[in-house]
Write a protein that binds this DNA or RNA. Structure first.
Lengths: 237, 237
DNA sequence: CGATAGGTTGACTTCAATCAAACGACGTGG
DNA sequence: CCACGTCGTTTGATTGAAGTCAACCTATCG
């Protein structure tokens, strides 16, 4: 089974969770921050290190340069919800309220560009084009949030997993032929999809048995995109 | 049981789902639109009438004047998800993308103020203060969306219902003493919380048996706010 | 090596969904 | 004014999908 994956690391372009072209990453969100680059500071965080905590004053916002970040909300009894995974090119924590309503943690070792939020506000005030891009970014975030609500509220475990794999295939750097390397562990996936780790495992196993995907630890090969996608898409145009 | 509710309609200030002071409603979102009032057109929709459909071009955005609106997303097999309920003072469909990613329907007969979205964009470009308020509105929307994801993914049926009642008590016009009149039916509540109608009923019944609330069709009296709120709040400050 | 952390599988339980029936409020027409 | 049908809600019986508990497996690393 793992034969399919053996060659991955040797390929010329292979650089997991890293921007193909170094910095800045070529991605939608990245250019939003472009005018602010001179004021950005590069920071790093180790695997599982907290970047900021829920409820603390929101001084900065961040652009992911390399690695993967998770946004986390907790309930007092320990129930955990991962709002989203942030990948190279993604901007986060730029929302204009005083405190963070979630914490951010490094899934892998990450490099970030950090910008004071106040500066973002200033730019949005002054630069018409910047403000417009920021609003568009917002709109996409809201749209994604609504899509996720549908997923969390109405999709079955298998459908959630299928949707997740397709999303990751779209967002993670891949060879373009359905071979992807997940930066996060099963527990994180579970907490992102509103499932338990066991259910995620079983879901992956079932997809593997049906020949829809191949699994080797963090690496997933999508064999039958149609089977994954059939439970996808909530639009009725 | 319904003795507690009998007097409601006779009270001087009672006007369900209507702004207390007529138009414009006094509410956070309302003043965002204030500069646009002269360009707004008043429109109405009957109970269950569609205001706009998912996937159609997004020409206008709306401010609720009276009544209640639901935002709906559908899957091909009929699974339904209500994103949010919009009440007097709430602004919706203002996101800056070309098509609607959800449909909007009147829960009750509604009155709306309709504004061309392009105008909103123009204003945001020109008026610094307006842009800022728009961004703040965004931030609150995103925050609410994240809170809802936690609810959908991690709360039990009873907790979902409790959270919902508290949210509605906060948002719907009430006498301030825990007496509220829900504009939407049980089916809508279920589709908002990712449950079935039966589970919503059972949840309400259980809360009633525990003396936490009193129920009479659409009217709910909150008897023990602490019992409702104990499963509330996801923050660990 | 042995220890550890993360992942997988199995047995069993539980919470919410499903299927089914009855109830109550409301509006219409006899 | 009352019988009747409809719609929304409530309750009960049963099923089923995902959670829980527990054991085992497999990399990785000191």
């Amino acid at each position: 089974m793992s034969a399919a994956f053996q060659a991955i690391e040797q390929r010329p372009g292979y650089a997991p969770y890293k921007s193909a072209a170094g910095f800045p990453p070529r991605h939608a969100d990245a250019d939003v921050l472009a005018p602010l680059h001179r004021h950005a500071v590069t920071v790093t965080a180790e695997r599982n290190e907290e970047i900021f905590a829920e409820g603390t004053p929101a001084k900065y916002c961040y652009l992911v340069v390399s690695g993967c970040v998770r946004t986390v909300k907790l309930m007092e009894d320990g129930r955990r919800q991962i709002g989203e995974f942030l990948l190279p090119g993604d901007l986060f924590a730029w929302e204009a309220l005083d405190t963070h309503d979630f914490s951010a943690e490094a899934v892998t070792r990450v490099t970030l560009r950090r910008v004071p939020r106040a500066l973002l506000e200033d730019f949005a005030d002054r630069d018409r084009d910047f403000g417009r891009r920021l609003r568009e970014l917002t709109a996409r975030q809201l749209r994604a949030a609504r899509e996720r609500m549908m997923l969390l509220a109405r999709k079955t475990a298998s459908e959630k997993i299928a949707s997740f794999l397709l999303e990751m295939e779209r967002r993670v750097y891949t060879d373009g032929r359905g071979l992807l390397d997940l930066p996060m562990g099963r527990t994180d996936v579970a907490d992102h999809l509103g499932l338990t780790i066991e259910t995620v495992c079983r879901g992956l196993t079932e997809l593997r048995r049906h020949g829809t995907i191949a699994v080797d630890r963090t690496r997933i090969a999508i064999r039958n995109r149609h089977a994954l996608g059939s439970s996808e898409c909530s639009m009725v145009h």
